[in-house]
Design a protein around this nucleic acid. Structure first.
Length: 506
RNA sequence: GGCCCGAUAGUCUAUCGGUUAGGACGUAAGAUUUUCAUUCUUGAAAGGGGGGUUCGACUCCCCCUCGGGCUACCA
């Protein structure tokens, strides 16, 4: 694929809530695309809807990308010479372009109130504000010039609508879907600007900014496909068709079960996060879990997300960011929506945990131990991680899975007791205690030699001894090799736990 | 309802007219193991239906069906 000029792409969220995982994927594809072609990725905040603005949402978005490692070259928090990057700070720019459209006769002023409009929609099933109806509405096209001017002068609130010529075939070229054709008659005269807050709506602001910020490719979710023809018309109305960006509409992330697109409530209902970071909604007080807090690694999420809707064309699935960049290609994006495969995301996380060093994971685990009032040297934690990381999918599973290394069992799992603690177990464990007591070198090898030698000499069943031993030390029937555990515990603690088990289980 | 987009196993997907339709997750069985996991091996599992085009269609075209999106002074 060939591109002339500079590649400039953007991610342009609206600060109406936390960043959705689907948004993360869109940002990732933009990021990969920009990196591959040596282009720039910008972050623009589309805050033209003052009613839906949510405090803290923008900070959340910025922090999420920081955690994920998706860096922007330009935009909010980064700067650049095409700013400002908050649409709310670009009011005057939009006003200028609204006037331009009005002057060209490509837009008009409408006075109909929201109430009047909803009344119309209620009355006429398929009411649409367009060429066929605008003459019957209250606007600068239907009203006498003096009356319209008087209304504006009188402070009457109004909106500016895009004047769409009916029955024109509009062609949208999409890098993923090919050519999409729509007849202009199905489009309505979209509101471009409202006098109430002197702010444009998404459509106007988006086109003006993409043009002014010299965006070369618009890579966004499929939910925007229906408005793409409108956007093409807008570029034409401004006379910018020659520099119009290339579009690429990504398939949507769907609910794992049921129907519809993945929504914010699906995650916690099914047991996975839909947001990168934990989020507390300041308006409703509701909380939503986040990938970071749930123990996911950013690399795993990114690798997983890259493959939900795109593939490298071969069987490789474990791909680092550095491998992803040269491989990424919009033509390998799928066209159909993907049911969110959260179990596979868990598998990716498991893979990435294995790749991470024991030291790095131990560092992350130290605060958890601290929280449980456990103070042990890092070196010991590193050893434990080495034994345990293969057994977890999430960093958060660490504590539950290896707490027995740090705290003795408080009780013994009933099922395991029934199955593993035999008639003679307490006698055998008492014998084992004296065997253990006599070991000078309490290493894995030292214990193995002494204990296995004793088992063989006495003619015991290895399983009988070791399973009861495990129950006494761990409290249940799980965990790594016994001597791995006891070598970390040390002789003293091992004997203490055996003694207590014999005492309680008899 | 209208408009647009899509359709390979339960899920994510490969194939770009000729393959025993490949991989991964999940799942089943087996192996390893002192337990539980991990790991390894093996298995089951797919082209929605109907018409065309063609020597030959999963692949190209049409219809149906199904899935998804949009349809605000939201983005």
């Amino acid at each position: 694929m060939m591109f002339e000029g500079n590649i400039r792409v953007r991610f342009a969220p609206s600060p109406t809530g936390p960043l959705h995982i689907g948004g993360v994927r869109t940002a990732l594809y933009n990021y990969l695309f920009a990196r591959k072609y040596g282009g720039k990725l910008l972050l623009r905040i589309e805050d033209t809807d003052t009613h839906r603005f949510v405090q803290g949402a923008e900070e959340y978005i910025v922090e999420s990308f920081k955690w994920l490692g998706i860096n922007f070259d330009e935009g909010v928090n980064v700067g650049g010479d095409k700013g400002p990057y908050h649409q709310s700070e670009r009011k005057e720019i939009y006003k200028k372009y609204v006037r331009l459209l009005l002057g060209k006769g490509k837009a008009y002023i409408a006075f109909d109130t929201p109430e009047e409009l909803s009344e119309k929609r209620k009355k006429f099933a398929n009411f649409q504000y367009d060429a066929s109806t605008r003459e019957c509405m209250r606007n600068s096209l239907s009203l006498p010039k003096e009356e319209a001017e008087a209304l504006i002068a009188g402070g009457q609130q109004y909106v500016v609508r895009f004047k769409i010529e009916p029955n024109v075939e509009i062609h949208v070229h999409d890098m993923i879907r090919g050519e999409v054709t729509v007849n202009s008659s199905v489009l309505d005269d979209k509101v471009l600007y409202k006098s109430s807050d002197q702010l444009p709506t998404y459509h106007l602001a988006n086109i003006v900014d993409d043009h002014l910020m010299e965006i070369s490719h618009v890579i966004r979710g499929e939910e925007w496909l229906p408005s793409a023809p409108l956007h093409v018309l807008l570029y034409q109305a401004f006379g910018w068709e020659d520099s119009m960006p290339v579009f690429a509409h990504l398939p949507l992330l769907l609910k794992p079960e049921g129907s519809g697109k993945l929504s914010k409530r699906d995650g916690d209902r099914l047991g996975f996060p839909v947001f990168p970071l934990e989020w507390h909604d300041p308006k409703t007080g509701e909380s939503y879990s986040g990938y970071r807090e749930a123990g996911y690694l950013p690399e795993a999420i990114l690798n997983f997300l890259a493959l939900q809707g795109w593939n490298p064309g071969n069987d490789q699935e474990l791909l680092s960011m550095d491998e992803l960049v040269p491989l990424f290609d919009l033509s390998h994006c799928s066209k159909s929506g993907a049911k969110y495969d959260y179990k596979k995301c868990l598998w990716f996380n498991h893979q990435y945990i294995q790749q991470k060093s024991d030291e790095d994971i131990a560092e992350c685990f130290m605060p958890v131990l601290m929280a449980h009032a456990i103070n042990v040297p890092l070196k010991k934690v590193v050893t434990v991680i080495g034994m345990m990381k293969g057994r977890i999918n999430l960093l958060n599973e660490l504590w539950e899975n290896c707490k027995f290394f740090f705290v003795p069992p408080t009780d013994y799992d009933k099922k395991t007791v029934k199955k593993r603690w035999k008639e003679d177990s307490s006698v055998r464990m008492t014998e084992l205690m004296s065997v253990l007591l006599g070991i000078d070198n309490f290493s894995i090898e030292g214990q193995d030699a002494a204990v296995m030698g004793w088992i063989e000499k006495m003619g015991y069943q290895t399983g009988d001894i070791m399973n009861a031993f495990r129950l006494a030390i761990v409290g249940e029937g799980k965990g790594p090799h016994m001597f791995d555990i006891t070598s970390v515990l040390g002789k003293e603690e091992t004997l203490r736990r055996l003694e207590r088990a014999v005492e309680i289980l008899k």
